[in-house]
Design a protein around this nucleic acid. Structure first.
Lengths: 148, 148
DNA sequence: TACCTTTGTAACCGCTTCTGTTACTTACCA
DNA sequence: TGGTAAGTAACAGAAGCGGTTACAAAGGTA
C-alpha cells in the first residue's frame, strides 16, 4: 500500500496546487513518475471516496472535490484500503466460535491492536492535503521546472 | 502482513502459556491452523529477532527467549517487517535529489506520516505477550481441549 | 552405534495483488 | 465533425505469501 498511498497523496497535493484548474492524468503521471492509466485508476478510487472530481473531454482532467484544508491524510488512507477487511482474519475450523482458539486470538488481537490503529488514525487526521502541498512548496522553493 | 503478525503473536502467546516447556512446530501449527513449516519459518524470524529459542532433536521445540512480560507487540511487529524499508519508496528519476518532486514528496510524507507511525508504535509497545496470553486464558476459560 | 525426533532450509506450486501497458469506448468542447 | 481526455477492460510481468514436499543437520535414547 506504500506506493498507492504515496502516489495518491502526490496527486492530491498537485491538485491542491492547481487551484481548481483541472489537471490531466498525463500531467499527473509525469509528475508522479508512473503511467496515466495508473493515475486514472487511483483517481477513480479517490473519486469514489468523494475526494476529487473529474471532467472528460478537451480541457478536462481532475480537480479536488473540496478545499485541500478539508482533506486529511486519514481520508486518503481510508480511500486506499478499499474494503477495509477484518484486519486480522485467521481461518477458523472450530464450529464453536466461542471456543475456537483461532477466532478468540483474532478477537483478542483486534482488541489489543485496535488502540494502535486508532492512534495512527488520529495522527493521520491531523494532517491536511493543504499542509502537504504547503510543505512541498517550501521544500521546492528555488527549484525551477517544478509546479510551484 | 496481517496473517503473519497474527500467527506470530499466536505462537508467542502459546509459548508464554507453555511456561518454558519447548513446544514443537507441529503442535504450534495445529493450534494456529497452519503448516509446521510455516511455523518454523515464522519462528526463524522470531529467533533472529531474539524473541524465541529453539532446541533440535527429540523433545525439542521452541520456547521464549525472555519473559513474556518483556516481549511487546511492537517487538513482534518489528520482527515481522524484516528489512523495514523506507516506508515510502517512490522511484526517483531526477539526478538532482533536492529538486526531484518524487523524492521531495517522499521526504515530506515521511515527515508527516512519521508521527502516525510513532503513535502506533507507542500503542503497540504498551501491550506485552503476557497480556495477550492472559486475555486469551480469560476468554478461553471453560472451553475444554484448549491450552489453558 | 543405530535410530528416532525435531528443527532448519531449500525448492516448487498456486494464489493474490499491484504496476505497467495496450486498446477501446464514452463524454465533452470547439 | 474532430480532437481531447477520462473510464475501463484485458493482459503480462513482478512480488509476496501460504502450503507442501523433500532433505540435511542436530540432539536425544535404546
Amino acid at each position: 500500500m506504500n506506493t498507492r498511498f504515496a502516489v495518491a497523496t502526490h496527486i492530491l497535493a498537485y491538485l491542491a496546487h492547481a487551484q481548481g484548474q483541472p489537471v490531466s492524468s498525463e500531467v499527473l503521471a509525469g509528475s508522479a513518475g508512473t503511467h496515466p492509466v495508473v493515475v486514472r485508476r487511483l483517481v477513480g478510487t479517490l473519486r469514489e471516496a468523494g475526494l476529487v472530481q473529474s471532467q472528460r473531454g478537451a480541457g478536462g482532467g481532475t480537480l479536488l472535490a473540496r478545499p485541500a484544508t478539508d482533506i486529511t491524510l486519514l481520508d486518503v488512507f481510508r480511500a486506499m484500503q478499499d474494503t477495509e477487511p477484518d484486519l486480522f482474519q485467521v481461518g477458523s475450523t472450530n464450529p464453536n466460535a466461542h471456543c475456537d482458539l483461532g477466532r478468540v486470538m483474532q478477537e483478542t488481537l483486534e482488541g489489543l491492536f485496535g488502540p494502535a490503529i486508532e492512534a495512527m488514525r488520529t495522527a493521520l487526521a491531523a494532517v491536511s492535503v493543504a499542509q502537504v502541498a504547503q510543505e512541498l512548496s517550501q521544500r521546492l522553493a528555488g527549484c525551477p521546472g517544478n509546479p510551484g
